[in-house]
Design a protein around this nucleic acid. Sequence first.
DNA 1: TCAATATGACATATATAGTTTACACCACTA
DNA 2: TAGTGGTGTAAACTATATATGTCATATTGA
Lengths: 64, 64
Amino acid sequence: MKNKRLKLARVAADLSQAELAEQVGVTRQTIGLIEAGRYNPTLKLCIAICQALDKTLNDLFWGE
Amino acid sequence: MKNKRLKLARVAADLSQAELAEQVGVTRQTIGLIEAGRYNPTLKLCIAICQALDKTLNDLFWGE
DNA sequence: TCAATATGACATATATAGTTTACACCACTA
DNA sequence: TAGTGGTGTAAACTATATATGTCATATTGA
């Protein structure tokens, strides 16, 4: 279950995985893995990502 | 930062910490700690809790 | 009283989120 | 031919979410 919405929001914000990663304080690999749906970030990280992309939890992480 | 909304939603659903914990497949202590705001659950657990309480991520975990 | 239920708090142990490092692939450009 | 930026992935490691176990307390009902 890839997270397509996250990837789309990131690209729309004109950020690379590495740039988003730096903004939220994780590594590029972590962002890549979340977009690939290979795991299960913590709530704090989800919120940081949402704030960086000006989205809400429901926008990026709720529902399939 | 205690999660008051989670506690209220759980009580409104007439569930004890232990009952909610069992429904989402964790221990009572984990629910207690999340309500107490002492950590940082994973996204999967947040979603399971929301589904058990018929709420969305934004309802329980977005904003202060 | 007493037993049962619900909660808070605290350790220690285990599973897994997240890091680091590294290599490979692709598209583009010089 | 390189060379660079963006991405996918994997192994080994560290940090921390979660489990397990226990004790204390408050409340409710018999």
